[in-house]
Nucleic acid binder design. Structure first.
Lengths: 131, 131
DNA sequence: CGGAATCCAAGATGATACTG
DNA sequence: CAGTATCATCTTGGATTCCG
């Protein structure tokens, strides 16, 4: 089912070209909705974590410091609803559920990871954040 | 003064290499703090808007649909504090303030834009978001 | 184990009014 | 024009409890 998602995206579209459309700037577009899921506090970390491979619920919970069960579950559901995450439930006892990225999820996660990566490497050396 | 910010970023570091460090996963690191500014609801849009060039306060306000004065001001201050945005105030009347990206701001904004761009082009066609 | 449901605290956000 | 101050509100996030 994921192969059908393949879109003939102009891959080398320049940033300025893409931005000229600027749909996200209008408050009520689906892009902004999805964007908010992706860049939500926990969404970012979930995507980056899953980029390294399939994880179980409790694995993600342990991996992502400070996330509560509720928020993790909610984040996973939102991203699953957006088609970025694949939820695979095994009907065994005790329950066993695995989360992984869909093809489009990988694309998004790669871009998120690029951002996170850059910040980890540089931002802390630039200026200390002041609250 | 902005030239001093230039950092010798290892540009071709692989994603997995960067992630292996995984500092952001621990709840209390400066990276996560900065990351949250960048990917905040309005931070994303401000960065993307400024990637297209210098803007005045009211220009940004008009460009970014739905943002309030308060949140725009706050977002700009946070990103300025992180060293991503340069605020240039001209002592004239009426006041004239220009916002632009610093060199590091450009780096971050490019990565944010890449993400936003991809979502704008693809995500809306994949699945309708359900709330 | 993997959630769903509930309640509650905290923080984010917005409308408005005011100032230099 | 470019904010700041204030207050009301709405959303997030967390702790807890319960269930299949």
């Amino acid at each position: 089912m994921s192969e059908d998602l393949t879109i003939d995206t102009p891959p080398s579209r320049t940033i300025s070209e893409g931005l000229r459309r600027g749909e996200v700037f209008s408050g009520d577009c689906p892009s902004r909705e999805i964007l908010n899921h992706v860049v939500s506090r926990w969404g970012v970390l979930v995507l980056v974590a899953l980029l390294q491979g399939t994880h179980r619920f409790s694995e993600l919970r342990r991996r992502i410091g400070g996330v509560s069960e509720k928020m993790l579950a909610q984040t996973l559901q939102l991203l699953e609803g957006d088609g970025f995450i694949l939820r695979k439930s095994y009907p065994v006892v005790p329950p066993h559920v695995e989360y992984s990225l869909t093809p489009s999820g990988i694309e998004v996660a790669k871009r998120v990871a690029s951002l996170v990566d850059w910040i980890e490497e540089n931002a802390s050396q630039i200026l200390a954040p002041r609250r």
